[in-house]
Amino acid sequence: MAASVKFRVYRYRPEDGGKGFYREYEVPVKKGMTILDGLLYIKESLDPTLSIRYSCRMAICGSCGMRVNGIETLACHTQISELRRRVITVEPMKNFPVIKDLVTDMAVLFKKQRALLTWLIRRDLVEQENPTHQYIQSDEELERYLQFTYCIQCGLCYSACPVVSTFPDFYGPQPLMKMYRYFADSRDEGGKERIDLVDKFEGVWRCHFAGSCSMVCPKGVDPALAIQLLRRASLRG
């Protein structure tokens, strides 16, 4: 394996405005080094002006989502050696406004998520505050939505979705998936309300099952499946 790789990093300075540009860095590679380690090496030794967002370095926080060689991954979750490339192109995520370099503004994702009622809806508020008994779920009821709770809101699926990038009003895979997580929950009582919310031109119908969202998800969540199931519920009224 090569002793060093070339990082082509997207740089964008908001004070300059206009389009971003690519700058190249030569990074020595050690065994087990991730893309994030490479970027941190650049920041420490080569170019301190590089901006990245990261936190946990172990694919839990979902901060370091970016596009590496044309596909969305978490930088901390991808080793340089597994790419098998001499040149590694690192770009910020698509479909989000870029704040600086590799840092994107993900407010739109959270805004859409909030608009889709991504919380448990209970009709009886008194009972909700002072429960009189336990609300037990069976294993099957848990499995119905458990997978979708693994989402870390990194925004990779939103960036990979071809429909979001061509039709920005589309709700996006992550918010719809999150909505399905609560829709499928046996404790949730928002069924009809939720279906009416997604049964719009901008809603589930703009998904064409391109599967890019499930392809890039670092946590094995399957947003494409969730959207199809939400659509099935919507089709059945």
Binding site: Q147, K219, A224, L225, A226, L229, L235
Partner: peptide, 26 residues
């Protein structure tokens, strides 16, 4: 195939995500 997928057929059931396994909908 797309109609079947939109009605939820042929996609498999949601299950706990396993590492290194493809998504259920594939």
């Amino acid at each position: 195939r797309l109609i079947l997928a939109h009605f939820g057929f042929f996609l498999g059931k949601p299950r706990r995500p396993e590492p290194f396994e493809p998504p259920v909908s594939f």
